[in-house]
Design a protein around this nucleic acid. Sequence first.
RNA 1: GCCCUCAUCGUCUAUCGGUUAGGACAGGAGAUUCUCAAUCUUCAAAGCGGGGUUCGAUUCCCCGUGGGGGCGCCA
Length: 479
Amino acid sequence: MTGITGCYLLGSFSRHKSHSFAMSQVRVRFAPSPTGFFHIGSARTALFNWLYARHTGGVFVLRIEDTDKERNSEAFLNVIYDSLTWMGMTWDEGPKVGGDYGPYRQSERNDVYQHYLKLLQDSGRAYEKDGAIWFKLLGERHEVFDEHRKKTVVKVKNTPAIIEDQIRGHVERTEDEDFVIVRSDGNPVFHFVNVVDDIAMKITHVIRGEDHLSNTSKHVELFKAFGAPVPTYAHIPLILKQNGPGKMSKRDQGALIEEYQRRGYLPEALVNFLCLLGWAPGDNREKMPIEEIIRLFDLPGVNQSNARFDEKKLAHMNMAYLLEKPADEFVRLAGDYFERSGAFAQNRPDESYFRDVMVLSQPKIKGLEELPGYTKYFFSDEYPVDPKAKDKIMGKGEPKVRLAELAEAVKSADFSSDAALEQMIQVLASTHGLSVGDYIHPGRLAVSGTNVGPSFYGLFRVLGRDRVLKRIERFLATA
RNA sequence: GCCCUCAUCGUCUAUCGGUUAGGACAGGAGAUUCUCAAUCUUCAAAGCGGGGUUCGAUUCCCCGUGGGGGCGCCA
């Protein structure tokens, strides 16, 4: 652990000077607390930290803020690791990977906190009250009745704490209150451990949600009390829930990263979408590779206003990424999704048949989660017939006659390509003086039970002659 | 109530004093067509209000209004 003496030397550098001094490497941290599932807002905070580290060639530290023993859990910890990894945000220092400034879980850093607490006590900046230890602010004290807490509190008017925020600009606050740094049960509190660890881990830039802006003056006072350099701050706007008032929380619809992972969203799509919530490259581009985003991302380019989460746009981004996947990768992704969602539970289809079905469906779906439903009839003969589609198609013309003609033609048709099948239908239609639609619509209904689906010729080709014939005959017999 | 903060189409955003205020999602219409998507064309859609500063304000300043956040021995 680094002693405080070293920090004191650096203490004379202001935030601005520290930017240029020693060409020090950027060190940012993402410091989640494992008190709930990992959500969109946390993910974006992590992302902006990660982007900035990658952009500057700096270090991305993962630190677990688990000082509240009542609320944190091991399960949530794994969700954090999984989600970060899934989104491609690898951390350079932190749990699992180690680093020179560990341990990286606050629950394991008590000796560090004790050391720093002693420094505060020795300099007269800490005192005991109600069994807890408080940080003592410097300045003029006066009592005031707080409407919110319904009690009289002591405000301390101090020399204004000035924050030069990379996103907000100049922010200052002239009044604060003494605050608890160690609970009466002996456990240190967020404000204290957060600052101590930022000092000990030599964090240069604190990038966090705007909900922390009001805390920052307290933190600045702590840095000053330790004689440590104040890090550069960047408070990013919050993500508001898509419906209703307030910021998004883990209880909101669509808030959990885990959910998108489960639903087969592409992580690159989610990441790209999240980057665009509060940041834009400035040239109207939206869908862009992460390498390009890393190259262009910078703190002053981040917006100041809150953004409302829009899952429709996310879905669109996901579709755009899915559409351009090479066949091999798409099939692999689809296979993974079928596996995870239990769609293979009943019967596992032949590998090349599965592949054909997926490749045929790729251009038609908006997300992997549509796939099992969209392709159901390919893998089972027991598919329902959509009554609406049936009414619509069987209600006009002579669909049964067309189906009989189609079945006859299928017996000798060339199933090797879509083009061959297309020609077969065209010949069939023209010999009877009809349009291809007169055969296609009943044909699709007969073999799939629905009026929506992939290309008709592809549908026949992939199903193959035997299935097509059997299904048409069965349909004719029962319809 | 106090403190901090923000403000361009419904939503995400571009504009760093001079633009017909641009793009994307969503919505409408059309094209294509074997359905549904995708795609292409196209329509509708915005500078919160009031004062300043300026030859000129969406852009800079102030006030108001509205939104968001904070005010825990949570993080």
